[in-house]
Amino acid sequence: MYQKPKWNREGVNWPNRDSSRFIQVGNQKWHLQTIGQGPPLLMLHGTGSSCHSWAGIVPLLAAHYTLIMPDLPGHGFTQTPPEIGQSLPGMAGLLRDLLSALDIKPEIVIGHSAGAAIAAEMTLAGYIHPHAIIAINGAFQPFKGLAALLFPVAAHVLGLNPITIYAVAEGAKDRRRIERLMRSTGSVIPDDMLARYRDLFTAPGHVAGLLGMMANWNLAPLVKNMANLKTPLYLLSGSKDAAVTPASAQALCQTVPNARFINLPELGHLAHEENPHAVAAAVLAVLAPAKT
């Protein structure tokens, strides 16, 4: 097994550390944070990230909701499951088990990037029954053409090669590489957030978890089923997102009856890290009618 980030080392400066806990559910050990008061709101981060991604937006939402923020399987400080648990249905099932163990039924789900796809998968499977799903630059569409064939194959090959995983982790020690990676998404994020990504990507276990997710990710069945989603879906889309274009979110509105497109001007893929106040304002605006 590859070494995961260590809580007493990489986790020392983790945002909202005092709200963290570890919980064992079956064979899966989770790291999650719970903050705030009010109706339960589940927050699912994107590929390669962790619950630290929500640090900026947490204080803006915690006065209105109880925020439940797990590290996804294989990410951050959460254990990497067997291969079946790294797929979209597998992660949805593991999160169902976690929520059941916590006795939490989220009224709202916010998902960033791949986290939004997991939220939709869980809802369509009947694992959760939220009043709304808010997707921040939601990654609902699979890669097209040759990339659709090569991307998971490449991730699988890289994941099987310990030398590659350790090389990625070693390379992440160079701050400039992390900066280039984040900026390639169309976002410029604060230095403290860059430091947390560096902590994650220098841990071979996190890199292996990321590659395992990429290798086992298949969005095609979800895409076919999205038209059956009855839950209101709010698609918050950064106009400068270089990873998930606004055009893909607008196209989804044509097939999902209850989907609504909301533009986030001048923001990239990591919009909620880049400008938490703007994203929180958009979130609270769409949720305000549900609370009245």
Score class of each variant (00 low, 15 high):
167 A>R: 05
60 L>T: 06
164 T>R: 10
9 R>P: 09
96 R>A: 00
30 W>K: 08
35 I>R: 14
159 G>F: 00
92 A>E: 08
62 A>E: 14
17 R>W: 08
198 R>W: 02
196 R>C: 00
234 Y>Q: 06
93 G>Q: 06
225 N>Q: 14
226 M>A: 04
136 I>H: 00
57 I>F: 00
238 G>V: 03
131 H>L: 12
44 L>C: 04
172 A>I: 09
80 T>D: 06
204 P>V: 07
28 Q>D: 12
142 P>M: 06
129 H>M: 02
240 K>R: 13
80 T>Q: 15
101 A>Y: 08
110 I>V: 15
210 L>T: 12
210 L>C: 04
110 I>T: 02
251 A>Q: 14
74 G>P: 07
77 F>K: 05
2 Y>G: 11
229 L>S: 02
68 I>G: 03
13 N>I: 05
50 S>Y: 05
253 C>P: 02
242 A>L: 13
73 P>T: 10
113 S>W: 12
83 E>G: 05
29 K>P: 09
152 P>Y: 06
196 R>I: 04
248 S>K: 01
192 D>F: 12
255 T>L: 04
105 K>C: 01
82 P>Q: 12
285 A>R: 08
21 R>F: 14
51 C>N: 14
40 P>M: 01
101 A>E: 10
88 L>D: 10
285 A>M: 06
204 P>E: 07
30 W>E: 10
104 I>K: 06
120 A>K: 03
233 L>H: 01
163 I>N: 11
286 V>D: 00
109 V>G: 01
250 Q>P: 11
138 G>M: 02
88 L>K: 02
215 A>R: 02
14 W>D: 06
48 G>K: 13
19 S>G: 11
199 D>Y: 04
